[in-house]
C-alpha cells in the first residue's frame, strides 16, 4: 500500500525534471533524428526525405574518415599522456615534503581554469611573433627562428594536445592521489620488509589500489576527448588545412558553416553512436576491474 503511494509520490516529484529534460534533450534529439533523413538546409526550405543518403555519404566521405583518424589520435595521445603525467604527479605529491599542501592546491589550477581561458593562454604561448615558447626555445638555442606552432599543419595538433594535457592531467592526478592515500601503510611497510624495490612496489602494492579509480578517470577523459570542441575552436578552428579538425568541429562546420542541417544531423548522430559504444565498452571494463581487484 505504502509502496504504491511512495512510487506515485516519487513520480510526482520527478515530473518537473523529466519535463525539462524531455523539452531540452528529448525533443531536440527526436528533431535531429528526423532532420538527419532529409536534405534540409539551416535556412530556407524544410527539405525533402532522402532516407539514409546522408549517413551513407558521410561515412563514405574522406573528410569524415580523416577527421575520425584525427579525433582518435587526439584522444589516444592526450589521454595517454594525461594518465601518465597524472599518476607521476600523484606519486610525487604523495611523498612527504615541505610545501606539499601548497603544491597540491597549485596543481589543481589548470583544471580549474575555464577551457576558453586555457586555450587563450596557450595561444599566447604559441604566438609566432611574441610567444613564450618561441622565446624560450630560441634563447636556449633549440630553435633558430620563431615558428608558427598553430599555423603549421605538422605541429598544430601536437600543440593542441599539449595544451589539452596541461589542462586535464590534474584531474587524473587528483583521482590518483586520492587512490594512493587509500593504500594501507602496513602493506607498503610489508613490501619494504619483503624487499620489493620501487618498481615492484608500484606493481604489487600501489597498482591494485590505483587500477579501479584510474579506469574511471580513463573513461571520463576518453569520452570527453572524443567530443572535444571548445579548446580547438578557440585555438585553431580545426585548421590549418583541417589538420586539427575533430568530429565535433566537423559536425559544427557541416551544420552551421555549410548550413547543411540534414547531413550535419546525421553526422552528429554518428558521433553520438560512437561515444555511446565507447561508454559501453568502458562500463564493461570498469565492472571487470572492480570485480577483479579485491
Amino acid at each position: 500500500m505504502s509502496g504504491t503511494w511512495m512510487s506515485t509520490r516519487a513520480w510526482l516529484l520527478m515530473t518537473p525534471l523529466l519535463a525539462v529534460m524531455i523539452a531540452v534533450i528529448g525533443w531536440p534529439m527526436v528533431q535531429t533524428v528526423g532532420l538527419s533523413f532529409t536534405d534540409a538546409k539551416l535556412v530556407g526550405t524544410a527539405g525533402t526525405f532522402v532516407g539514409l543518403d546522408n549517413y551513407a555519404r558521410m561515412l563514405a566521405s574522406s573528410n569524415f574518415q580523416r577527421t575520425l583518424v584525427t579525433t582518435v589520435w587526439f584522444a589516444v595521445v592526450s589521454v595517454g599522456a594525461e594518465m601518465m603525467l597524472g599518476v607521476l604527479a600523484a606519486l610525487l605529491l604523495n611523498q612527504e615534503f615541505r610545501g606539499r599542501t601548497a603544491l597540491r592546491a597549485l596543481m589543481i589550477l589548470p583544471w580549474a581554469l575555464p577551457t576558453v581561458v586555457n586555450a587563450t593562454l596557450w595561444r599566447l604561448i604559441y604566438n609566432p611573433e611574441y610567444g613564450a615558447l618561441n622565446a624560450a626555445l630560441t634563447q636556449i638555442g633549440l630553435l633558430d627562428a620563431y615558428r608558427s606552432w598553430l599555423g603549421e599543419p605538422g605541429s598544430a595538433l601536437t600543440a593542441l594536445i599539449v595544451a589539452d594535457c596541461w589542462k586535464n592531467f590534474p584531474l587524473v592526478a587528483l583521482i590518483a592521489l586520492a587512490a594512493l592515500q587509500a593504500v594501507p601503510r602496513d602493506i607498503t611497510a610489508a613490501s619494504l620488509v619483503d624487499g620489493a624495490g620501487p618498481f615492484n612496489r608500484f606493481r604489487f602494492v600501489i597498482l591494485p589500489y590505483l587500477a579501479g579509480p584510474l579506469v574511471v578517470a580513463l573513461v571520463l577523459r576518453t569520452i570527453e576527448a572524443f567530443k572535444v570542441f571548445d579548446i580547438i575552436w578557440v585555438m585553431t578552428r580545426g585548421g590549418p588545412a583541417n589538420s586539427t579538425r575533430t568530429l565535433s568541429i566537423l559536425v559544427y562546420q557541416e551544420a552551421f558553416s555549410f548550413q547543411r542541417a540534414g547531413s550535419g544531423a546525421s553526422l552528429a548522430l554518428i558521433v553520438t553512436l560512437l561515444v555511446t559504444l565507447l561508454a559501453l565498452a568502458y562500463a564493461a571494463l570498469v565492472r571487470k576491474t572492480a570485480g577483479r581487484a579485491f
Partner: peptide, 13 residues
C-alpha cells in the same frame, strides 16, 4: 627480520 602486521597487510591481487 620478518614482520607480521595487525591488518595482515597481504597483497590484495
Amino acid at each position: 627480520i620478518a614482520m607480521v602486521f595487525q591488518s595482515y597487510a597481504l597483497y590484495p591481487n
